[in-house]
Simulated assay, not measured.
Amino acid sequence: MSLLHSRILGEGQPLVILHGFLGMGDNWKTLANKFAADGFQVHLVDQRNHGRSFHASGFSYELMATDLLAYMDHHGLDKANLIGHSMGGKTVMEFAVNHPQRVLKLIVADIAPKSYPQHHQAILKGLGLLWDAQLDSRSQADELLATEVPDAGVRQFLLKNLYWKEKGLLGLRMNLPVLAENIEEVGKPLAADAHYTGPTLFLKGARSDYILPMDEILIKRHFPEAQVAEVSAAGHWLHAENPREFYQKVLNFL
């Protein structure tokens, strides 16, 4: 079985971090350095079809949870603290309900165990333009992406996927064709009968609508020991928009 790519920082109790859709582990590098300084061995993992991890035709939360299990087995992690943001949050939820004995504490960032409608159409269309283009500069990629994605902050996040395929030619690290083909998988809910009774923290952005007040009933149904807390002055990318408060809330929970 193919193994997920990761960057490992620090020594101590294992803390595995899973990024969101179209992201990569390196998005969390600044926070990871802080956790490492506080005595954790931080694993910044790229999920399948993202970052430097392997490309595969299969894409689902069941498969991504199995990837995480294989990763922990390979690195000798009997148990670990898990943080997952957005898509990564769905992955760690799936992992926890299927392998509760392998989880120390579970942190889910700005995602609920419910179904979400597909809402990445413009982003995927913009990335498709980059995929088909002959890109020789990041400014050219930004200009092209802006035709579909006007938000500069979102473009900056997406353009972190660029890398030099060869001299003078940029490419995208993610497996865009498979991600676009399987986009409906990203919004799928946790199974109705799924439960995890270990210590769990859900963090939601104060300006995000990914976790609504009514969702807390569903969260408690699946995760009866869950705490739900808010990160102020932050939207969906709460760990990047208010890293200090996000970090402190996570550290207090751990």
Rank of each mutant, 00 (worst) to 15 (best):
P189Q: 00
P189M: 04
P189L: 11
P189N: 00
L190K: 09
A191M: 11
A191F: 05
A191D: 13
A191S: 15
A191E: 04
A192V: 10
A192W: 05
A192F: 00
A192H: 08
A192S: 13
A192I: 12
D193N: 13
D193Y: 07
D193M: 03
D193C: 07
D193Q: 11
D193T: 12
D193R: 04
D193E: 13
A194R: 03
A194S: 14
H195Q: 12
H195D: 04
H195Y: 09
H195A: 12
Y196R: 04
Y196Q: 06
Y196D: 10
Y196F: 15
Y196H: 03
Y196I: 07
Y196W: 09
T197G: 11
T197K: 08
T197S: 15
T197N: 14
T197Y: 09
G198Y: 01
G198P: 04
G198I: 08
G198Q: 10
P199I: 00
P199D: 14
P199R: 07
P199H: 01
T200S: 02
T200N: 03
T200F: 03
L201H: 00
L201N: 12
L201W: 06
L201R: 12
F202Q: 03
F202W: 02
F202L: 11
F202T: 00
F202G: 06
F202D: 09
L203T: 03
L203R: 02
L203H: 04
L203Y: 08
L203K: 05
L203P: 02
K204A: 14
K204D: 04
K204W: 05
G205E: 00
G205W: 13
G205N: 12
G205I: 12
G205R: 10
G205S: 00
A206Y: 07
A206V: 05
A206W: 01
A206F: 01
A206P: 11
R207I: 10
R207L: 14
R207D: 15
R207H: 15
R207Y: 14
S208H: 01
S208M: 01
S208Q: 01
D209K: 09
D209T: 10
Y210I: 03
Y210C: 09
Y210W: 02
I211A: 05
I211K: 01
I211H: 01
I211S: 08
I211N: 02
I211W: 08
L212K: 15
L212I: 13
L212E: 14
L212S: 09
L212Q: 15
P213Q: 00
P213E: 00
P213G: 10
P213L: 02
P213S: 07
P213D: 10
M214H: 12
M214W: 06
M214S: 14
D215G: 08
D215H: 06
D215C: 09
E216N: 07
E216G: 06
E216I: 08
I217R: 04
I217L: 11
I217K: 03
I217V: 15
I217N: 00
L218Q: 15
L218K: 01
L218M: 15
L218D: 12
I219C: 06
I219S: 03
I219G: 07
K220F: 11
K220C: 02
K220M: 03
K220P: 06
K220R: 13
K220H: 13
K220T: 03
K220Y: 08
R221L: 12
R221E: 13
R221P: 06
R221C: 05
H222L: 02
H222D: 10
H222A: 00
F223A: 13
F223Y: 10
F223P: 09
F223I: 04
